[in-house]
Amino acid sequence: MASGSYEASRQARLFGRQRPFHAILGGGKVADILMWRNKKLSASILVGLSTIWFLLEVVEFHFITLLCYFLIFNLLFFFLWYNTARFITWSPPCIYEVGISESTWRYLFKRFNWFMKTLCEISTGKDLKLLFMTITGLWILSAIGTCFTALNLLYIISLCMMTLPVMYEQYECEVTYLASKGNRDLNRLFRKLDSKFLSKIPRLSLQ
């Protein structure tokens, strides 16, 4: 029976999705980074995040101190590059191209707005199961937050974002099988809670 469920999971996709996971993440540069399509850029970002975490958490640099050192290093680096490029046949840096693209900011604001709208939709209580799961997840996250500093928690989340999507893509069948099995157990638990408690909660009819 278990082998049959596993074979079925090879044909199905997690949460019944139809699009590739890369497309669900946006299909742009952010998705390329998270899915390691550009290995050099993804590795550089991961190394940079790990270095910042190490300097702030292990070496115990203050954030302002580290930021000032970073800016000093960049000033000296671009100064040397700009003034020595003429002697070593390098093209000088184009300072007007330095910055974050507007498309990246639009993507981030779009995701933030989607997150806020989703929370408001969940809070209406139209789907009690989803509301219960969201509250439970936030409660678990708050409990985890008491065990870590904000910096450690942000680093762990960033580390998960840089590793879990690409690992899921490689082991999609196994993850789908385990997720479907866990979802069945969760549905069984929710039906018990619904029959004993949630179904007895009076609801207001909105006209």
Rank of each mutant, 00 (worst) to 15 (best):
Y155G: 00
C173S: 07
L141T: 12
L67V: 04
L80G: 01
S123R: 13
C120N: 08
H62M: 01
H62K: 06
M162P: 05
Y171S: 13
I144Y: 13
I64K: 08
Q170L: 08
S142P: 01
E174P: 00
F77W: 04
I157K: 14
D127N: 15
T176R: 11
S91C: 05
L141D: 11
D127P: 00
A143N: 07
K126F: 01
A85Q: 07
I140Y: 08
N152C: 11
T163M: 10
T124A: 06
L67G: 02
V166R: 13
V166A: 05
G99M: 01
Y171P: 01
A85T: 03
P92V: 05
I140M: 15
W139P: 00
S158M: 13
N187S: 04
K117Y: 05
C94R: 06
I64Y: 04
T163W: 13
I100V: 11
P92M: 07
F79M: 09
V166I: 15
T104V: 07
T163V: 15
V166L: 11
I95E: 08
Y96E: 12
V98A: 15
W81D: 07
I140C: 15
Y177R: 10
R86A: 12
T176A: 14
S101P: 00
Y107L: 09
C68K: 03
S142C: 04
C147V: 05
F112Q: 06
V166C: 09
F77M: 00
W90C: 03
W90L: 11
M116E: 11
F115N: 07
Y171F: 14
R111M: 06
E121I: 05
W81V: 01
E97H: 05
M162Y: 13
T65H: 07
L66K: 00
I100W: 04
Y168F: 14
A150Q: 09
I72N: 00
S91G: 02
I88W: 03
L154W: 03
I100C: 11
G137A: 08
L108C: 06
M167V: 12
